[in-house]
Design a protein around this nucleic acid. Structure first.
Length: 485
RNA sequence: GGUCCCUUCGUCUAUCGGUUAGGACAUCUGGUUUUCAACCAGGAAAGAGGGGUUCGACUCCCCUAGGGACUGCCA
């Protein structure tokens, strides 16, 4: 049997980082088993679904390299099929027409809640109220479920799933393990609304079945839904898929990840934070999954090693420091041209002139091993684009004594003799100067660095001179050298 | 309220009854040094609490505490 997994977001917003991880697991499992990874947009809620959200989600998935193997299925286009199945379920006796309205059900819940509040306020309830409340709190069973009662003529009805009263439903989940629940604890849910439209519970099952999904990998907020959906498979005589409910991602404080934690949408990880997709995959993979002591895991290793059963049950917290360190590894590994292209697309890069960008392009090999993300890359590149005269702050300013200014003049002369303006030749010239004057690099390094970079982070001083170019380097030194010396 | 799930260093995790409880990130100390970083050496750091089962529990069972999910004609 070919493994088929699917990622099925509802297009009501952006692609959440937790969803991205779920998608990664689906994708990896399909790849690991030589199966297919499919996408389905659950847009049955017309009020909340937008094309912009669909685009954003697909864009996020593509950035992460998690595109589907087939074009995405739009759930909204399949309503007729969903209804067909609902009616088949009625025919087979697994569901029934029910005239109970949403308002009546809501009234039931309201009454139960009111009694609960009363109990909380007064400490206890009268015997009749207590039993009334317990009754109301029980899973809903419609009076029309056994078909003995005639339907009121002309009243709108929904198609409702018939839930068994006795027995347990057992689910063997790849992540959650074997969990059982009594049928008696399950509501009889609506399958087809009174307007004939399908509900989520029905639609997922029908679509998963029709798409040939063999493994449902989803957030564990859906775990209990499995018990509601399985009876639909049973009712239709369909084989149920295998399940893996993966825990949600939490914020650094251990609470469910929300906007106040900062980045929740994957495009923020790309745009605002400057992470690489391969680093995201590696980091997300390690959040809740492990393979011994391995930390840096390539895509091919991940595909070879990944297994649903090795996923942890407990939710993991996001740790940006760790993400940074993983990302740093992949930045150092990245191809120079690609890295430069990624960086060039950033707003801070677009503001620069061609000449400045050119300087940075040359510096990519030196810069990339020093940056945890593209934001930091920009920061590390700043010394190449700061405008003259370089602002000396704090310690840098204190270094600029009269003696230092004379040194700069002398160095200017010494470096003037360097014909081939490259790191190695510059290094030789600097060393020679130190030798001839009987001083160590410690005498000139800090001063040079100060006037060249203003104290901004920068690589080796000879490399800095080289990257700046002869003219810019001399100009920056000249700004602070003793005049007339 | 009910049902279900979770709990090892600050964080991600290893351990699948017998280990000095290991690794990574972060952190601290020292070294190197022309800044930052990198690098090298070293350190501190964990089984939520309480009961069992067992010759022996992080590991199995129960209880408590804390956290979470579900309880819609939303998905």
């Amino acid at each position: 049997m070919t493994v088929v997994t699917r990622f099925a977001p509802s297009p009501t917003g952006y692609l959440h980082i937790g969803g991205a991880r779920t998608a990664l697991f689906c994708w990896l499992y399909a790849r690991a088993k030589g199966g297919k990874f499919l996408l389905r947009i659950e847009d049955t809620d017309k009020e909340r679904s937008t094309q912009a959200a669909i685009d954003a989600i697909l864009d996020g998935l593509n950035w992460l390299g998690l595109g589907g193997d087939e074009p995405p299925v739009l759930q909204s286009t399949r309503a007729a099929r969903h209804a067909e199945v609902a009616h088949e379920l009625v025919k087979r006796g697994a569901a029934y027409h029910c005239p109970v309205t949403a308002e009546e059900l809501q009234a039931r819940r309201d009454e139960a809640e009111a009694l609960q509040k009363k109990k909380a306020a007064e400490g206890s309830l009268s015997a009749s109220d207590q039993s009334r409340m317990e009754d109301l709190l029980k899973p809903f069973r419609s009076p029309w479920r056994d078909l003995s009662k005639p339907l009121p003529p002309g009243a709108p009805t929904v198609v409702r799933l018939r839930m068994p009263d006795v027995g347990d439903l057992v689910v063997s989940d790849h992540v959650q393990g074997t969990v059982s629940r009594a049928y008696a604890d399950l509501d009889e849910l609506v399958l087809l609304r009174s307007d004939g439209s399908p509900t989520y519970m029905l639609a997922v099952v029908v679509d998963d079945h029709d798409m040939g999904v063999t493994h449902v990998v989803r957030g564990d907020d859906h775990f209990l839904n499995t018990f509601r959906q399985l009876p639909i498979y049973h009712g239709m005589g369909w084989p149920a898929p295998e399940y893996a409910h993966v825990p949600l991602i939490h914020g650094p404080d251990g609470k469910k990840l929300s906007k106040r934690h900062g980045a929740t949408a994957v495009d923020e990880y790309r745009d605002a934070l400057g992470y690489l997709p391969e680093a995201m995959r590696n980091y997300l993979l390690r959040l809740g999954w492990s393979h011994g002591d391995d930390e840096i895991i390539s895509d091919s290793q991940a595909i070879e090693w990944f297994d649903l059963d090795a996923l942890n049950k407990a939710p993991a917290r996001l740790d940006f420091a760790k993400l940074d360190s993983v990302n740093k590894h992949y930045i150092a590994l990245a191809d120079d041209d690609r890295l430069f292209a990624l960086w060039s697309a950033r707003p801070e890069a677009r503001k620069l002139s061609d000449m400045e960008r050119g300087r940075i392009r040359t510096a990519v090999p030196a810069l990339k091993s020093r940056s945890a993300n593209l934001v930091q890359f920009s920061e590390r590149a700043r010394f190449l684009t700061d405008l003259r005269p370089i602002q000396l702050e704090g310690k840098s300013a204190a270094l600029l004594t009269d003696e230092a200014r004379s040194r700069l003049s002398a160095l200017l002369e010494a470096l003037a003799g360097v014909n081939d303006w490259a790191e190695s030749a510059i290094k030789v010239a600097l060393t020679q100067y130190c030798d001839q004057n009987g001083i160590s690099m410690g005498k000139i390094g800090p001063v040079l660095r100060a006037v060249l970079t203003g104290g901004a982070p920068a690589p080796d001083i000879a490399l800095v001179l080289a990257l700046l170019g002869r003219n810019e380097a001399f100009a920056r030194m000249g700004d602070y050298a003793r005049t007339g010396g």
